[in-house]
Structure formats: structure tokens, C-alpha cells
Simulated assay, not measured.
Amino acid sequence: MRFSKIKIPSYLKNKYILTLVVFGVWIGFFDQNNLWDRSKLSSRINQLEKQKQHYEVEIENNLRNRNEIEESAESLEKFAREQYLMKKKNEDIFVIVEEEE
């Protein structure tokens, strides 16, 4: 039984090229900081940056609301009525909920 010779390109016989290819495969797939993990971490960073921006806007809105409430007793009363459904003894509260279609 005769085996036919497989022709290997000359650039794959070069030990430097072969070492570079093995190193690239190792770094790309098997290393602690491989490409798959780096892409997952990059998407997680983007997600956290979006959350950070959202919370910064929320903080800004809450600070604005707090300053408005601290300015006068009327605005504090309005806030308490709207947010916590507080009322005076002789009042009735009607909550209107809009239905979404």
C-alpha cells in the first residue's frame, strides 16, 4: 500500500510562520483573554455605559424635583398628593388610570 505524498506549501514549513500561526490561535481561542471573552466584556461595558447615562439623567431629574419641593410648601403638598396619594381629612381621591391599547 502506497501513501501519496501530501504537498505542504513552503510557507507552512517555515518555523517562524508556523510559530506565529500557533501563537495567534492560542491567543485567539485558548488564552485567558481570548477574543470571545473580550467581545462579551466589550458588550457588557457598552450596556453599563447606557445604564450609567440613564441613571445620571434620573439623578438630575430627582435633584431638580427635590429643589422644587424644598422651595415652597405648595409644591411639597402637590408632590405628596400626586406621588403618594395623600389627602386631607375631608377630601376624596379619585385615581384615573389610562389604559394602553
Rank of each mutant, 00 (worst) to 15 (best):
N34H: 03
E101S: 11
Q53Y: 06
K7N: 11
Y84K: 05
E77Q: 07
G28I: 01
I17F: 13
L76V: 03
E68V: 07
R44N: 10
S39T: 11
F3H: 08
E91Y: 02
G24S: 15
I96N: 04
D92S: 09
D31R: 00
S39W: 14
N67C: 03
L85D: 08
K15D: 10
L12Q: 10
K13H: 04
V22P: 00
E58R: 07
S72T: 15
E49F: 09
V95G: 00
R38S: 12
Y84A: 03
D37Y: 15
N67G: 12
S10T: 15
F3Q: 13
E49L: 11
S43K: 10
E56Q: 14
V21E: 05
E101P: 10
D31E: 07
L41N: 15
S10G: 02
F79H: 11
K52D: 09
L20D: 08
Q83H: 14
V22S: 09
K15W: 08
S42M: 15
E82L: 12
L18W: 06
N90D: 15
Y55A: 01
K89D: 11
L18D: 06
I96E: 02
L12P: 04
H54Q: 14
E82T: 02
F29R: 02
E100N: 07
S43C: 02
S39R: 14
F30G: 00
N61Q: 07
E91L: 00
F3I: 08
E77Y: 07
R2T: 11
K7S: 11
G28M: 14
E101V: 10
S42K: 14
S4A: 11
Y11S: 06
K5S: 13
V22Y: 09
S72W: 00
I6K: 11
A73T: 05
N46S: 13
D92E: 10
I59D: 05
N90M: 09
F3N: 07
Q83F: 09
S75H: 12
L63I: 08
K78M: 06
M1C: 07
R66L: 13
I8M: 05
F23N: 02
I93Q: 01
E74C: 09
G28A: 15
E82R: 02
E60G: 08
S75E: 14
I8G: 01
K87A: 13
S72P: 01
L48T: 04
E100D: 08
I27V: 11
V57L: 08
H54I: 06
E77K: 12
L41V: 05
G24Q: 10
L48I: 09
F23E: 06
S10W: 02
F23G: 01
G24W: 11
D31K: 01
Q53H: 08
I8Q: 01
S4K: 09
P9S: 01
K78T: 09
F79Q: 10
L85K: 14
S75I: 08
A73L: 09
I96G: 00
V95A: 00
D31L: 02
F29C: 07
E58H: 09
N33S: 06
V21S: 04
K78Y: 07
T19E: 13
L41E: 13
N61L: 12
S10F: 04
E100Y: 05
T19S: 13
V57K: 10
N14P: 03
R38A: 14
L76Q: 12
S39N: 15
N46H: 10
